[in-house]
Amino acid sequence: MSPDKAERGHIDSRAELLTCVGVSKIFGGLTAVSDVSFSIPHNSIVSVIGPNGAGKTTFFNMLTGLYKPSVGRISFLGKDVTGTRPDIITRMGVARTFQNIRLFGTMTALENVLVGQHARMKAGIIGSIVRTPAVRREEVRVREVGREILAFVGMPESSFDQLAINLSYGDQRRVEIARALASEPKLLLLDEPTAGMNPNESDRLTDLMRKLRDERDLSILLIEHDMKVVMGVSERVTVLDHGTKIAEGDPVAVRANPAVVEAYLGKQG
């Protein structure tokens, strides 16, 4: 947690929003992520791509605290967050969505977004029982904010009180992004957000990502298989294969990189 820890890892973290140095994750005999160094600048959209099983989601899970890196350090906003609990990392300003949507199915769209605001709320046990004026005000405020966020991601007003399991696939993706945004993140991690979407829907999502970066002043880290989305929206692309970083750079350079072509075409072709 202490800043000198971060310095021992030789992380120049003040310039970047998030920095990883030499991060590895080993499950038993399997090295899922191996010695990846990586950083995310303020106010940017960067992508991680790679074939299936390249370790992208494992990498994500380390950034959000679900996994503890076996080796290496991660720092966020200049603070060492290696092995910090997921809820604390969220409180610090990292929010995420999941590859296979993980909304709370029996809660409404709005309630899901309210859970996202949990870390920004104060109501305790006694306050909630007595319903003090402060708790009442907070409850009114988070509901307003929740509605705003749902409208921002493009949900129609009529769907706010709809249970999450009733929503269409695209809407569920949107609510999941809204829920993540509700925690007021400085870094938003999107794990294959366009999976299962038609081209029209992915276009709208791409627009939304740009809008988020420009209007909400946050950075987005994207895992994505749809190359059109990745190449269109990212400022920088990192390629993982078998857990190691094989290329990094702007989309055009990465696309031309022979190692990347081999990793993809070698598998597919």
Binding site: L66, D87, F104, H118
Partner: peptide, 9 residues
């Protein structure tokens, strides 16, 4: 997992 990731301790 989702709850923890949304900031619920």
């Amino acid at each position: 997992v989702a709850a923890a990731s949304m900031g619920v301790p």
